[in-house]
Amino acid sequence: MKLLDGAIAAVDHGGSLGRASALFPHAPRPFVDLSTGINPHSYPIFELPATTLSRLPEAARLGELRAVAAGAYGAPSTAHVAAAPGTQILLPRVASLVKPGKALVLGPTYAEHSRAAAIAGHAAADVDDVEALAEADLAVVVNPNNPDGRVVERERLLQLAAHLRAKGGLLVVDEAFMDVGPGGESLAGDVGQGGIVVLRSFGKFFGLAGVRLGFALADTLTVQRLETQLG
């Protein structure tokens, strides 16, 4: 177990060609960027109406988006989906759903989960054993995992969620790469039980990186809390 000492400094995950060019000014061009998890074969762009750039989206259109997401990811209903401008902005808000305590992240994995837990006031640590997550107030599993593709079975995660829920804890499952993973292991359809938040990322599979879009799937009360925070 590695204690993170409450450090909340942003981690450089790569993805900035400008920064890479400054660091390696004499490198051959073009750069091949292998540092991001964005699908380079984006969903085909259709003709956008002029109103797309000239007015704010109506609330009803957000409802349509949530309904499509619920169907695509297998959430129980639209009411179990919160949409956000990227999954990243959700991380500290999800971590704050539990009062500050012990946050354990199954690693090695994406470093932002530990940082977000620290921002929310938790004592954050990485662990390398699923069983150790039972000691957490906030447990985080990236499933399938980044960077090694590890998959934790759905039934095992549901048992962990039940244990955490009984003591007022929360299981967060980041399914950013589940679109190309074993869909039967997703917890999206189980979030109505409570004590589970599933995160889904748009750009990892659909590309269109300029569209900042992500989703939190959870019980209806948790969705309402997150939407209140997002404004």
Rank of each mutant, 00 (worst) to 15 (best):
D12T: 12
P25G: 08
H26D: 13
P28Q: 11
P30W: 13
F31M: 10
V32F: 12
V32Y: 09
T36Y: 01
I38M: 10
N39K: 11
I45W: 09
A50G: 06
T51L: 14
T51S: 15
T51V: 14
T52E: 09
R55S: 12
L56Y: 06
L56I: 06
P57E: 07
A59W: 08
E64D: 14
E64C: 07
G71A: 14
H80S: 14
V81M: 05
P85G: 11
G86I: 11
G86K: 02
P92F: 05
R93D: 02
R93A: 04
V94T: 07
A95N: 07
G101M: 06
L106K: 04
P108W: 03
S114F: 07
A116D: 12
A117F: 08
A117Q: 07
A118W: 00
I119F: 08
A123Q: 14
A124H: 10
D126M: 03
V130L: 15
E131Y: 07
A136H: 05
A136R: 01
V141W: 01
V142P: 00
V142W: 01
G149I: 02
V152N: 05
R156Y: 01
R156E: 13
L158G: 12
L158R: 13
K167M: 11
G168H: 01
L170V: 09
L171W: 10
E175Q: 15
M178P: 04
V180M: 13
S186Q: 00
S186E: 07
D190Y: 06
G195W: 00
V197P: 14
V198A: 03
G203S: 12
A209V: 10
V211P: 01
A216T: 02
L221T: 14
V223Q: 00
V223K: 00
R225V: 05
Q229C: 08
